[in-house]
Design a protein around this nucleic acid. Structure first.
Lengths: 215, 215
DNA sequence: TGGTTTATTGACCGCTGGGTTAGGCGCTCG
DNA sequence: CGAGCGCCTAACCCAGCGGTCAATAAACCA
């Protein structure tokens, strides 16, 4: 089960192996971290000699950077899906659902990036910057949507959009932490959405749809 | 500045060095992680030979476990401070403030434990268990307080205590993440408390005390 | 065809890591 | 006093690390 013929061997020989190395490295780095993963191990997992890894990538750090770039690929803010026809409440819900779905689907890499971020100064500044940009982008979207919703609707909490967005981000980050820790997440992501939705919109209504043992 | 005469050399020679090693290891593990910290470096920081480290601790893992035990010491839920005379709202606020204060004061070790937890299976199960227990204890306290408050007061959100507690924990965890990432925290922990307090108690009031750029 | 380039390898190197060992110093107790 | 024990060290061991290199096979181009 050498990874080299994953694509059927149809590639120009060179890029096939590079890709295999990258894939192996992606998985190993994500599940064991940078220090705990040796280049030899990556090479072995890719079914290739260690020297070849150093032929494709100048050194381990460069391989790591390439892996990060790859892992970041799915992290584009898909705003295109924001249907202008939907009302703001639906769009907000959609945004929250997207977030939760994304985190659940990419749990491994989210966990990985969180770990990197937690390492503080000793992590490449560019990575932190990239993630922070994503974060800020998402938050701006929230602020914008909440502000627009408040202009149109009267049944909302009277609260500055920035404050509401900050609060929402807290909740989302908290849920994220819960998801990552307790392994495989809250039973019903939908229940989280409904709590947040009700917080923003139906400040006074009662609702117990959230499972009490959700932690 | 060898750490050996930290206590003035009054200890029975043996435990003094053990303590010095433990302290040095504590700091180094917390700020650089397990893999990135060599035993030699710990020994050097403790002003002691590497062999002595292995005399006190069978191997690096055991040293690590001892460090974790030490780091966990301040993590006791101080419920004694819960003044029965205070009303539930004040107690809840106090609980939240304590949480935030604790996280801010112990940021280094909190970050460290979070990192450990994120490593999933490859982290000692006992550590996860200990932290989970603390987490559950805190949450139980919240549930209890909220339930008691709801029985006494009428100005609260109509929401199941478990749901409210879960939501609160989300927010707290989210704030924690924010604190740990953006380095040195939100400017005013008090503003976070007030937002959460208002959420629980004054569902309809307006308040903008939270700085918009709090992320 | 033969030379150049592109991929690939096994063997190697220097160094650092965790861990061991043999021995030394000072205290205590019979 | 000297045997034994607790504490401590310098020196060593060696597996595994990141990284290099000379050799070589295949692909490409003249």
């Amino acid at each position: 089960m050498t990874a080299s013929e994953r694509t059927g061997g149809s590639e120009p020989r060179g890029q096939g192996s590079r890709d295999g190395i990258l894939r192996a490295a992606m998985q190993l780095f994500a599940e064991r971290g940078f220090q705990e993963t040796s280049v030899a191990r990556v090479a072995q997992a890719a079914g290739v000699s260690k020297a070849l890894v150093f032929w494709h990538f100048r050194n381990k750090e460069e391989l790591f950077a390439a892996v990060i770039d790859r892992l970041l690929e799915p992290y584009i803010l898909d705003v295109s899906g924001q249907d202008e026809a939907l009302d703001e409440r639906a769009q907000l819900n959609h945004l929250v659902v997207s977030y939760l779905k994304f985190v659940q689907e990419n749990a491994a890499s989210v966990r990985f990036f969180l770990q990197q971020l937690l390492r503080g100064q000793r992590t490449p500044a560019s990575l932190s910057a990239q993630i922070m940009k994503l974060y800020a982008g998402y938050r701006d979207l929230l602020v914008d949507l909440i502000a627009r919703a408040q202009q149109k609707r009267r049944d909302m909490r009277a609260i500055a959009p920035e404050t509401a967005a900050t609060f929402l981000m807290w909740a989302l980050n908290g849920i994220l932490v819960g998801l990552l820790f307790t392994g495989n997440g809250i039973a019903e992501p939908q229940s989280a959405v409904s709590v947040l939705d009700k917080w923003l919109f139906d400040a006074g209504l009662e609702d117990d749809s959230l499972s009490p043992s959700a932690d």
